[in-house]
Amino acid sequence: MPDNVESDEEIASKVQSGDVEAFGEIINRYQDKLRRYARHFLSAEHEVEDLVQDVFSKAYINLRSFDSDRRFSPWIYRIAHNTFVNEIRRKSRYGFNFIDADTILPILAAPETSDADAINSELDAELKIHLAALPPKYREVLVLFYFESLSYQEIAAVLKIPQSTVGVRMNRGRTKLREIYDQEINKPTS
């Protein structure tokens, strides 16, 4: 990133001090990302638009709770996650639980293998096509990692789950995606 480009955290600090126009820059930087994130959970475009607007409204209202020494993106994704989950809960399409089975026990995440990059790039393409078929809890970590480029630590902060759980969900999500993909290609053509 060039030196003259302000970081999200610097812009957020400006907004906190009363620079309203700076909030426009935050909207510029995040509106497409949040729309894309929302589309993985909500199908109707007008819902996506309303909810993303809602996320920015909440972000502005609560901006003084943001600590500019931390990264801005996990903070705004946390707001987005809560907003989308609440909407899904309201519609009762999916069950998001406070305590999920894979957050209860300590888990050792398997280390990445040397062919991980090749698998990952292959998975990128699969992800886009088959993501909708995955359960939401696996879909969300994959979306945040592959599409929003968040680290495991940041995903853990957005979802408020242990980092080891993020790793487990990533692995299970990939495996399930692979199964869905295999089923698709092995399906007899009529």
Binding site: I99, L105, P106
Partner: peptide, 8 residues
């Protein structure tokens, strides 16, 4: 708390 397993 949330960074650790719920059991902890």
């Amino acid at each position: 708390c949330y960074e650790r397993p719920f059991l902890y």
